[in-house]
Simulated scan of single mutants.
Amino acid sequence: MIDSASRLGAAGRALVAMTPQLVRAGVTLDVAYLHDAPDGCQPELTEAGAAVFAVGRPGRAGTAAALHRLIRERRPDLVHTTRHAGAHRSDLLAQAAAFAARTPVVSSLVDPPSGPDRPGGLRPAQALDAATARGTRRFHALTRYVAATTAKRLRVPRQRIDVVPRGRDPELLGTATPERRAEVRGALELPGDVPVVLVAACQQYRKGLDVLLDAWPAVRRAEPEAVLLLAGGEGPETARLHALAGVAGNVRFLGPRDDVADLMAAADAVAVPARRDGQGGAAIEAMGVGVPLVCTDLPGLRETVGSEDYARLVPPERPAELAAAIADTLADRSAAGARAQAARARFLTSFTLHQVSAQTVEFYERSLRLRPA
């Protein structure tokens, strides 16, 4: 169960990538979604062997009834939901429908617990989390950090939470080669020798893009020709980010992209300046492509990246330190390349789609065997 069928959202991308692997492993996969999207991934899911169902209806009661009918008709062994800052509606509706149909529910935990996404804001449905957790068969978290912190918030035993990261297909990601770099830069009308930094993230406060833009003038003082590419959909921070970019200079907004791996292959560094992140999908992709990485030293990101042997890590919300790390990465290409090579080796041993899919099937099988503790 997902909120949106958009192929550009994290849930949609992960599902499109995972579906062929799960189907080949013997999983009969039904995908229900609330909202259509112009960039919908329904054709890819269907081609990969999933059955896809639009269940969004006017009003929550109508959607809950449609979900209940679907579950009664399809009779799945498990209903899989996601607990996420942007997916509370689908999670709660799917859980209610599954509970009514007496179908076990498993749920993914993708973000660490936090306060508001922006000072003064509120996260809806947070008060219901602990109550609905009692009826959830098992949980899956992207990192040990998310598992440990969320167990406390939901008041569930840690042993009810399995850790399975999101993965990427190394063949689909490809690697950073001179030929690929030249082709992508040509399409973007970027000279081959201009330093390029890429960030791939939606324009939300938790992504810390404003911190990166605050840091960018200092990067340009060290590398005057450097260009910053921002790939990702608009959001609550869009107007503010455009204002900051006008001051920083040499910043290009690319909008939502389905070729992020190509953009990474054309970049000299990938930045992940997040204030909050459960695992770091962009960091995993940069590791897989083999591009130098600079990211904030959040527990979930450090668990993914490993250490400074693989990436430059800086405290969150420190523009000066972020600028220094990016400038150093652009200046010392030899050291940055060594880190990127080590990071790709780490990716291949821990985050390939084949490995993650096998762990997901094991999670489903374990969920069917075990009752909540």
Rank of each mutant, 00 (worst) to 15 (best):
R137A: 06
S357W: 06
A265F: 04
K152S: 15
H84N: 13
P119C: 07
L263S: 01
R60G: 15
A336Y: 02
A11P: 05
Y364L: 08
P124F: 09
A5F: 01
F351D: 02
G121R: 12
V23F: 06
S108C: 14
V294F: 05
A266H: 03
Y145N: 14
A54Q: 12
T360E: 08
L241I: 05
R134P: 02
A11K: 02
L93I: 13
R371Y: 09
R158W: 05
G233I: 00
K207H: 03
L209I: 07
V196I: 04
P112M: 13
A267S: 11
R240M: 05
L45F: 02
V105T: 07
V110F: 10
E308Q: 14
F347E: 06
D129T: 09
G121N: 05
A345W: 11
D77M: 09
S307I: 13
R60I: 14
G232V: 01
A5T: 02
G281E: 07
T19E: 09
D169K: 03
R24A: 15
G62Y: 11
A248H: 01
L109C: 12
I71Q: 09
A267D: 07
A11C: 10
G120M: 04
A311K: 07
E171A: 15
G232F: 00
P273A: 07
A94S: 14
E44R: 01
Y33M: 04
M287L: 05
L198P: 06
V199I: 07
S334F: 06
A182W: 04
G49M: 03
S350G: 15
T349P: 09
A283Y: 01
E321M: 13
P292I: 10
A147L: 04
L330E: 06
F53N: 04
R339F: 11
D36N: 00
L34H: 10
V219K: 03
D258C: 00
T238N: 04
T238S: 04
A283D: 06
I326E: 06
C202I: 05
R158K: 13
I161R: 03
A94G: 15
Q159N: 12
T136S: 03
S334Y: 14
V305C: 11
A10P: 01
P38T: 00
V105I: 10
A64P: 06
V110E: 08
Y310F: 15
A25S: 12
S107D: 14
A182K: 03
G281V: 06
G208K: 02
P116L: 08
A176F: 08
A345G: 15
E223R: 12
A17R: 12
P217I: 00
Q95Y: 07
A100T: 05
G62T: 07
V227Y: 02
S307T: 12
T177Q: 08
T28E: 14
L173H: 01
D3N: 09
A5N: 05
A282E: 04
A131H: 11
V291L: 10
V110N: 14
L213K: 02
V219D: 02
H140N: 11
G26T: 10
Y310I: 09
L213V: 00
T349Y: 11
D258S: 01
G186S: 07
A14T: 07
R72L: 14
H80A: 07
E73R: 15
R24P: 09
A265D: 03
A148M: 14
F53L: 13
T238D: 01
T175Y: 08
L172A: 13
G280L: 13
A182E: 12
T149P: 04
D297P: 14
Q279Y: 13
I71C: 05
D77V: 12
L67I: 02
R118M: 09
P157I: 11
